[in-house]
Design a protein around this nucleic acid. Sequence first.
DNA 1: TGTACATCAGTGAACGCGCGTTCACTGATGTAC
DNA 2: TGTACATCAGTGAACGCGCGTTCACTGATGTAC
Lengths: 206, 206
Amino acid sequence: MMVRRSRSPRGSGEQLRGEIISAATQLLVEHGTRDAVSIRAVAGAVGVTSPSIYLHFADKDELIDAVTAQYFEQLDEVLGDAGDGLPDPMDRALAQGLAYVRFAIGTPVLYELAFTHTPNCDKESMVDEVLAAAAFMRFSQTVQDLIDDGVYPAGDLVTSVLELWSAAHGVASLMISKPHLPWGDDLRLAETVLRSVCVGRATLAQ
Amino acid sequence: MMVRRSRSPRGSGEQLRGEIISAATQLLVEHGTRDAVSIRAVAGAVGVTSPSIYLHFADKDELIDAVTAQYFEQLDEVLGDAGDGLPDPMDRALAQGLAYVRFAIGTPVLYELAFTHTPNCDKESMVDEVLAAAAFMRFSQTVQDLIDDGVYPAGDLVTSVLELWSAAHGVASLMISKPHLPWGDDLRLAETVLRSVCVGRATLAQ
DNA sequence: TGTACATCAGTGAACGCGCGTTCACTGATGTAC
DNA sequence: TGTACATCAGTGAACGCGCGTTCACTGATGTAC
């Protein structure tokens, strides 16, 4: 049943924009399919007609970009919550890595969308990258602390971050796309992989 | 320009089937987009009309399944070529892991398709899994050899395979979806991650 | 050897559908005088 | 204080498109007699 929302007051065009992004996100989560997101479906969920979407987004691509941007912001918050209050870099790295995997497998369709959707490649990809950067930089700080602590070998910071990110992403992504494999009940496998990379990377450098 | 192929002789329906799969694969590779594969496009590429496709596949999903199945078979061959003649399990594991990553990033759209497309879930997913199993079992043998050699800790074999697979998949998948990140020119980062997991996993177990 | 017939790979035309997007519009809200 | 007007968030109807799929058919090939 579609409920017609009441008209927004003058200044508050921004509010509908937010509702649209949330509706698109919710559609993805609930239907579990990428193509549950059509302009019509989103508009219907918000309680508005489809052309209204174009008052807030140039086209569908821009809407999807906004959805993934918000998703990356949420990811950053999750990493923040997971790492705060853990002074030991190794503990923090592990906690953030596991939080990353947990967040990903908790929202599989969104995660896949964020890592499959190719934005308009030139400027758009930059925007995407910049918004992802909050989480990226947060994790980079953790890795820097690992290096300062001597746990992780010194070297190019970004490269080190990519190594650990690849490990976390690998577990999350594979768990999402092949859920029937015997992953076990918790994230022990994820923890093993993350720990192994940290420990092994340190050993390799010696 | 579309070339009408001549009619197949009586028994050789199988031949067209193969051509259809190849054409679909090629369309994906050349256009670099998932939705370059439509029944019409595939039929056109083969030189046949669209209804002909349905003489060989029940529906589009079954065609896509066949494409990914063939892709997994190719993957198995690649792993075989990479590992043959390397008696040391560690060398072989590394060679196969790097070959995996190289194969994946060489055919990014197919790789994404194979790891995103959700088959009909019940029986179909089994078929998919079984066909993937050739590569899976080949790599499992390598990991078993690693264990026998004492490089990798004893324990559940499948779990160990998943750990290493996750690592290789993580690098490959992230390189594909975020190609603008500074991955370096060759697969050194992939090698580092794979080595780290092996070494680190051994250290953890002690 | 010749003819009638069954087979079946492939055709041509069409179906209904949902999609992204456009365009002229409406009508409540705020502002100027 | 009252009225005319500009603004602009949102509407309703429609566009063209490409899609997956269906259906009655054609016509070359092989087979039975």
